[in-house]
Design a protein around this nucleic acid. Structure first.
Lengths: 117, 117, 117, 117
DNA sequence: GTGGTCTAGACCACG
DNA sequence: GTGGTCTAGACCACT
């Protein structure tokens, strides 16, 4: 279901967060859909349950999912979820803009790049 | 000359790299211009000289600066480094734009975000 | 009759206890009034009968309700329970007020917060 | 420096969070003051370092402290810190108000209770 | 069987 | 020595 790459330096739990975030933002996982159990994901990836738990916990604090003890974890009802996603997306965006401007790329070039997508 | 913020989680040597990269790519520092001495920067920022050395070393490997033993470090004359940086920045930028659009953020909002920086 | 939200992390039996406590303390349920049967509540909420049973048992130990075997559960006639509840609520309240004032929040803001509920 | 009680059912990391929050909100710990190292606290309390780390991490996400890898953890410069504290205090406050109202306590009684503190 | 918490100990990058 | 991440395995409350 999920795939991770040990190399890349990125923490495993971070990779999980991004992958799940991607699945939610692209609509592959619908709201209130159940996520696979912590232990199941851990076993499938050959990873420690704590690592998966950490990812789920982080996603819950972002408002993307909610966990019900003894029941499971579910995709958040898209009110909070979308807000959180957009907030995060804007943060990444502004960061990349700062970086681009810092490299001498002009504003107009960025605007054109947006329109060409 | 340089300023760092100990907060933010970003390693100090990374911050130094980015700052110097910015100064070079924006033309504030011209080619063959001498960079301040490692010890001077370290003293001014109150950080360990090893940290500054690490930043200079990383920049040298990127081809952005070159070191002359017993003389100092200078801005590299080749423009390969800057071109590579811009290419990378544009890649990150387009990626973040795709992500933002995928979350339902509108183009206009992105353009406004650029102008507000 | 009762409604629960599977979110929020709060155990279902806890939610039941609070809801019933609320109904009793606000006078919606009068003394010696019969509570709905365990199985009925369970079926209606789609939860395990054991969960409802646990809630009723906890309330009985608090003295808020009493059970007649093979008949059902009824609101207790004694007002000790309610008094104890109010005492506890006031304790929590004053504690949160002290905390809020300690953070620099003004009295007026607290009063307004009360009125906006 | 810190003291915890195993009993009480409250998770250890939660107790740590509350204790540190208290120390900050009461002004015992000033802004940019260094918190004791994760391992040090763990050793002193006879608790696992991970547990302390969890508490520090939670406090960091709340904006109450900030951690600098390889340097230490520090009390957040009181801009974010106070905001976070007030936000949390108001949350607790409204919760206790709802609880009190649910027990049949009247608004006026709550207002009087505030003024008597 | 589920999520949540905890222990015991390890490795890493960084300063 | 510091925070950050990870493993291996355990116990608990709840459904």
């Amino acid at each position: 279901m999920f795939s991770i790459s040990i190399k890349g330096g990125l923490p495993i739990y971070e990779q999980l967060c991004r992958r799940i975030t991607e699945l939610i933002s692209t609509g592959v996982m619908q709201k209130d859909e159940k996520l696979p159990a912590v232990r199941e994901v851990a076993k499938q990836l050959g990873v420690n349950p704590n690592t998966v738990q950490k990812a789920y916990h982080a996603l819950e604090q972002q408002g993307l999912i909610y966990s019900v003890p003894a029941k499971g974890s579910y995709v958040s009802s898209s009110e909070e979820g979308v807000i959180s996603l957009r907030k995060n997306a804007m943060k990444n965006f502004t960061e990349s803009v700062k970086n681009a401007l810092g490299c001498g790329i002009e504003r107009q070039a960025l605007v054109e790049a947006i329109d060409s997508i």
